[in-house]
């Protein structure tokens, strides 16, 4: 029986309440979370954002680690608890972190080869393991190149499918190139959007239509895959400013 233990319990044999400490920690965690949430919005202020750009991501990770440690150590009372509990939790946690870092390192080595000549072949990837090999022109294409090719291929196919869907349902009102038609469809090639220009906004506009004007819901005419493709296609028209387009309607959208 330690002396500290006697100090800890009050006369009635009940343990000392941690209520106040818990509430203080709750307030601290709220403040930390508010800081985390503020960071993405800080990006809108380049004067503050840019000089410290390399700092933000590590700062977020550090704040997250702090919250993790605070909840485990204080709320779960692992700090100061028996060694066996700490061992049972912390050793698998270490394994989990190692798995996480290895997967991260693997991603980097697969798709962003660094150094010279060390790279992984597509065959290695297919076989399910990663083996560093000396790369030269004669060897099979690198996983990175294969991936880039597949990505470019998918992008081109999505673009073609988006254009096809546009020609099928949008062209009649928004024109061949998205220039718009008076009293029928808005200009899609300027940077003005009546109902918002993000992926989400445009998807909802196309799928559900917009009440109060002539834009009909296209969810029946297009599959969700096609709506997605046509939205990417419409986003690609932004800023092309086709001559003879309809005037700007709605708010200008920056990016």
């Amino acid at each position: 029986m330690s002396a500290a233990h006697h100090d800890h319990a009050d006369a009635g044999g009940l343990p000392h309440s941690h209520k106040k400490a818990y509430i203080r920690l709750g307030v601290l965690l709220t403040v930390v979370t508010a800081i985390e949430l503020g960071l993405p919005f800080l990006k809108a202020y380049p004067d503050i954002w840019m000089p410290f750009e390399p700092v933000w991501a590590p700062l977020l990770v550090a704040l997250s680690v702090f919250k993790f440690g605070a909840v485990v150590g204080e709320f779960m009372h692992l700090r100061g608890d028996r060694r066996i509990f700490q061992f049972l939790f912390l050793s698998p946690l270490a394994i989990a972190v190692i798995i996480f870092l290895l997967l991260g390192a693997l991603t980097v080595s697969l798709f962003l080869p660094f150094g010279e000549g060390i790279a992984v072949t597509a065959i290695d990837v297919k076989a399910g393991y990663v083996r560093p090999t000396k790369s030269s022109g004669a060897e099979p294409p690198l996983a990175e190149d294969k991936f880039k090719a597949a990505f470019a291929d998918a992008k081109a196919k999505n673009f073609e499918a988006g254009k096809a869907a546009y020609d099928k349902v949008c062209k009649a009102c928004h024109g061949d190139k998205g220039e718009g038609k008076a009293a029928l469809g808005f200009n899609l090639t300027d940077d003005c959007y009546k109902y918002g220009g993000t992926f989400k906004d445009l998807y909802v506009t196309v799928a559900d239509g917009r009440a109060g004007n002539k834009m009909p819901a296209q969810a029946g005419a297009l599959k969700s895959e096609e709506i997605r493709q046509v939205v990417y296609y419409i986003r690609s028209l932004k800023g092309t400013n086709v001559p003879g387009g309809q005037p700007c309607v709605g708010d200008k959208v920056a990016d």
């Binding site: 049972l88 912390l90 989990a96 996480f100 997967l103 597949a150 998918a154 895959e225």
Partner: peptide, 30 residues
């Protein structure tokens, strides 16, 4: 419970690691 939570660390560690392994490699969809 502590032993179970230890195994859960590895479970979720793998799921989150896998998410990052494939991050940025989607060929379709939003």
């Amino acid at each position: 419970m502590w032993a179970f939570l230890g195994s859960e660390c590895m479970f979720f560690g793998s799921l989150i690691g896998t998410y990052f392994f494939y991050h940025g490699k989607a060929l379709a969809g939003p």
